[in-house]
Write a protein that binds this DNA or RNA. Sequence first.
DNA 1: TCTTTGATTGCATAGCTATGCAATTTCTTT
DNA 2: AAAGAAATTGCATAGCTATGCAATCAAAGA
Lengths: 337, 337
Amino acid sequence: MGVRERRPVTSVDVAKRAGVSQSAVSRAFSRTASIAPGTREKILKAAAELDYRPNRIPAIMLSGRSGMVGVVVGGLSNPFYAGALEHLVCSLRERGLQVLLVHVDDALTLDDALEQLLGYRIDAVVTALAIGSKAVAKALDALRIPVICFNSRLTGQWISTVSSNNRAAGVVAARVLRERGVMQPVWLAGALRNAASVARGEGFRRGLGAMAGELVSLQGADTYESGYDAVSAMLLRGVRPDGMFCSNDMMACGAIDALCERAGLSCSRDVMLLGYDNIPQGAWRAYDLTTFDQGVGQLVKTACEVLANALEAGGEPVSQNIVIEARLVERGSTAGG
Amino acid sequence: MGVRERRPVTSVDVAKRAGVSQSAVSRAFSRTASIAPGTREKILKAAAELDYRPNRIPAIMLSGRSGMVGVVVGGLSNPFYAGALEHLVCSLRERGLQVLLVHVDDALTLDDALEQLLGYRIDAVVTALAIGSKAVAKALDALRIPVICFNSRLTGQWISTVSSNNRAAGVVAARVLRERGVMQPVWLAGALRNAASVARGEGFRRGLGAMAGELVSLQGADTYESGYDAVSAMLLRGVRPDGMFCSNDMMACGAIDALCERAGLSCSRDVMLLGYDNIPQGAWRAYDLTTFDQGVGQLVKTACEVLANALEAGGEPVSQNIVIEARLVERGSTAGG
DNA sequence: TCTTTGATTGCATAGCTATGCAATTTCTTT
DNA sequence: AAAGAAATTGCATAGCTATGCAATCAAAGA
């Protein structure tokens, strides 16, 4: 048998074996093309025997569309983002789009990463970056391909956003605490440049109304540790809250642990507490956290629809901004008693 | 100015503007090619003015190498996998490899997904699937490209594995519990087809030695809920453990919560408990979980090296199996008192 | 100055598929 | 049965870059 050829199987090989032209092979694998059922069957049989897989690369060259979407993530350590990514990958695949994944620490990495992705002629970009600056927006807009951002305030000709109604949720959080007689409310903010966090804080303050004067604001950084540390410091300063709203669930868990461990305060009995994101860990019995569910499924589905619209716009920039209401999920941390 | 052309900028456009040939442009963007510094500068300037990005697609056709690696994940809801993915994406990018991400629920999805990925001529596959069957191994091996699996027993000409020493860790877990006077050990297993879990259980049983007769084995499914439920059922049956080894941290957290809530048992004071994976949540104060750290960094680094080897093998199948020792991380859940 | 060497550049091509168009075959209709 | 309509098929080509090869040019040595 001589040397085993490693040359990949092409449509020409299949055509030869099936006794048809190369174009027939191409059509056999296309859903829309016109081809006789018998011919298709014959070709698919030959293809299976040769273990032929249609090569998408030449098609990309011809159409200029790769069918790949660049997905930029940062902070997968937050289960909310990990879950969102999982949903996103599935939804995009259902639409025949592949995910080219990039992880980003800072703006520098982002530029680099985008350069590389552009070489692959990605059709669009989806980002779940919590933090976005004007520079980032500019870099994304310069790509001249559709960009979809979650919970971001980035703007641009090509940039669409899908966000939960952070401000409204903040108002609701305040109402819940007021209704239950909270006298000393505390707001635990996320990273300074996290637009969603800022909006949640604004809503909370507004919702507190007359009580806003009593509000104590803490600065966190979106992580469990930052929540734990911020609340520990607050306790050392002698502040004794009876109600808290935390910009996300990770920090909320940190806050609960600090309250308990540093001051013996029990969440719910001594302090009512709300988080945001509805991560699985918030439902763990040790935390039993009241929180806001952004509806990851809905969020991702909407993002995909926006994306599909933008891709069909035929090279014209599309910019939509969609807001989805978050749903309050009440658990033990606001049950009182 | 007429109609704005949407045709993407090609190397020919840059060549024209810079007054050189198309090949010169190609060489200007290549690190190895021979080109005069002045010429390169001139070309890069023209390229920047036109906003030209080298297109990798034609190069893929010529070389047959896409520079993309298919990464198959399932269960990103386990923070261990989410973290591993994050590391992996970064490490691969440092080596100039892009990540084409696929999420998989079951074997069916996998076949579909692989079909699609093959169309993009991926150079290799990396999987972090906890669960692998013979059918999966066969499907992967049939791709005739390097495959790297984490913590798996999949075998094949093209399949390499990188695993932590699950059995040895199980032995260590048993020793820890024995040394601290545990009389009623319990093993909480992960999903049945999870090879890593099986190995951990075997090691644990072996490490218990004479005490293995007392061992109570529970069946979980790798999730928090499954751990909570399995332990709750055990408590209902009247079993009162004083030492537990859980196949992963998620289940360990569920176990701790069930012990406390269903039987008022305190982890550490009444029950010594170990997990596996060292997920961030295990370090949260509410759990303070002793666990085994697989060393994600090391694991991923090794996987990338194996991958690089395999890619350099020039089409010949490569199969390595590397085992890394897990490190015991002692925290409060085994502190006693 | 002439030859030799090395560096730089351009030409031409390969790589594989999808698709417009024309040619051919099959089916319908009268 | 003939003509027209519809379906099917093959031919030829575009799409963009990297690279072997030959040609050109500059520099160095004789």
